[in-house]
Nucleic acid binder design. Structure first.
Length: 276
DNA sequence: CGGTAGACCTGACCGC
DNA sequence: TGCGGTCAGGTCTACC
C-alpha cells in the first residue's frame, strides 16, 4: 500500500491526533509476529515511556520514545488508526488488528495489516542509525537530492530504470505507483536501461520524483484499496494519477492508449508516445 | 558484486 | 454457490 507519501500522511495524522507527548501505558500484541516475530521483552521495556516524536525515514515510521524507539513498516496493507478515548465499552478489535498501543490519555493506536508484510520492532536506545532496517538506505528524495546524485547512482546500473528508482539503495520512498508516474512525467520509458538515462534526463527524472511525491503528500496519498490515514481518511491522489492503473485508457497528454506490462515482477504503466 | 525469480500472506475479483 | 486462477501500494532471500 504505502509509498513515501502515504507513510508521511500517516505520520502527520498521528501527530495531529496528539500522539507526540503521550505516555505509553502498554503495548498489547494480538499475535506473535508480523513479517518478523515480535521481541516481546524489548517491546515490554518501552511500557511507561513517552512518545517524544514520530518521524519518517524512507517508508519507515519511527517512534522516538523517552529511552528507546519503535520502528514500523506498513508493508503492502498495514495501517495505524487512532481510537479516541472511550468511556464504558471500548472498541472491538477488527479482524487483522495485530497491535494495540494503549496510551495513558486513553487513546489507543491500532496496527491493522491483513497480509502481515509489515514490521513492528522495539529498538534499544534512540540511536536508530544502526538498525538493520535503516542501514543501507539511500537518500531522501525531498531533502538534498538531485539529478546529479541520481545520475551517479545509475551510471553503472544494468537493470531497467523503473527497477532502479524503486531500489531503496538508490533513492528511498518510490514504490510501484510513483515510479510509473515519475517516469511518465519525465518522458522516460520504464524499460530503458538505467545506464542509458542521460544526465539531463536524470535531472528531469529527479525533479519528477520530487514533484509527484510532493503533490501526493499534499493530496493525502493514494487510496487504491486499503490505505487510510490514522484518522480513517482516504487519500485523494488516485484521482490525479496519469498512467498507473490506466492500462488501455487514453493518455491524458496525447490520447494514445496507456500500455501495461510486468517489469521486474511489478505491473508497470506508460505511454509509448510520450515516453522514450 | 549485480540482477532476478520466488517467497512471504490474505482478500477481492473474474470466469466457469 | 463454489472453485481455481490472477492480482495487489513491499522487501528479503536464494541462486545464477
Amino acid at each position: 500500500m504505502p509509498e513515501l507519501p502515504e507513510v508521511e500522511n500517516v505520520r502527520r495524522s498521528l501527530q495531529a491526533a496528539g500522539v507526540e507527548g503521550s505516555k505509553v501505558e502498554r503495548v498489547e500484541l494480538l499475535r506473535a509476529n508480523l513479517r518478523t516475530p515480535f521481541d516481546q521483552r524489548l517491546i515490554a521495556k518501552t511500557h511507561g515511556q513517552r512518545i517524544e516524536r514520530v518521524w519518517r525515514r524512507a517508508k519507515f515510521l519511527l517512534f522516538e520514545l523517552s529511552k528507546d524507539a519503535w520502528i514500523s513498516h506498513l508493508g503492502m496493507t498495514g495501517s495505524w488508526r487512532v481510537e479516541p478515548k472511550r468511556t464504558g465499552v471500548g472498541f472491538a478489535a477488527l479482524k487483522h488488528d495485530h497491535i494495540r498501543v494503549h496510551l495513558s490519555s486513553g487513546m489507543v493506536l491500532v496496527y491493522h495489516d491483513p497480509r502481515r508484510f509489515g514490521v513492528f520492532e522495539a529498538h534499544p536506545g534512540k540511536d536508530l542509525v544502526h538498525s538493520k532496517w535503516l542501514r543501507g538506505l539511500g537518500q531522501e528524495p525531498l531533502e538534498s537530492w538531485d539529478g546529479e546524485s541520481l545520475h551517479a547512482s545509475l551510471r553503472h546500473r544494468e537493470s531497467v530504470i523503473k527497477s532502479a528508482i524503486m531500489d531503496q539503495k538508490v533513492v528511498v520512498g518510490v514504490g510501484n505507483i510513483y515510479a510509473s508516474e515519475a517516469l511518465f512525467m519525465a518522458g522516460i520509458r520504464p524499460t530503458r536501461k538505467a545506464n542509458r538515462v542521460s544526465r539531463e534526463e536524470c535531472g528531469r527524472l529527479a525533479q519528477a520524483i520530487r514533484k509527484v511525491l510532493d503533490k501526493a503528500i499534499a493530496s493525502g496519498g493514494s487510496t487504491i484499496r486499503d490505505y487510510r490515514q490514522a484518522d480513517g481518511q482516504k487519500g485523494e491522489f488516485q484521482e490525479q494519477l496519469l498512467v498507473y492503473g490506466r492500462a488501455g485508457l487514453s493518455c491524458r497528454q496525447c490520447a494514445q492508449p496507456v500500455k501495461q506490462k510486468v517489469i521486474g515482477g511489478r505491473s508497470s504503466f506508460w505511454c509509448a508516445t510520450c515516453q522514450r
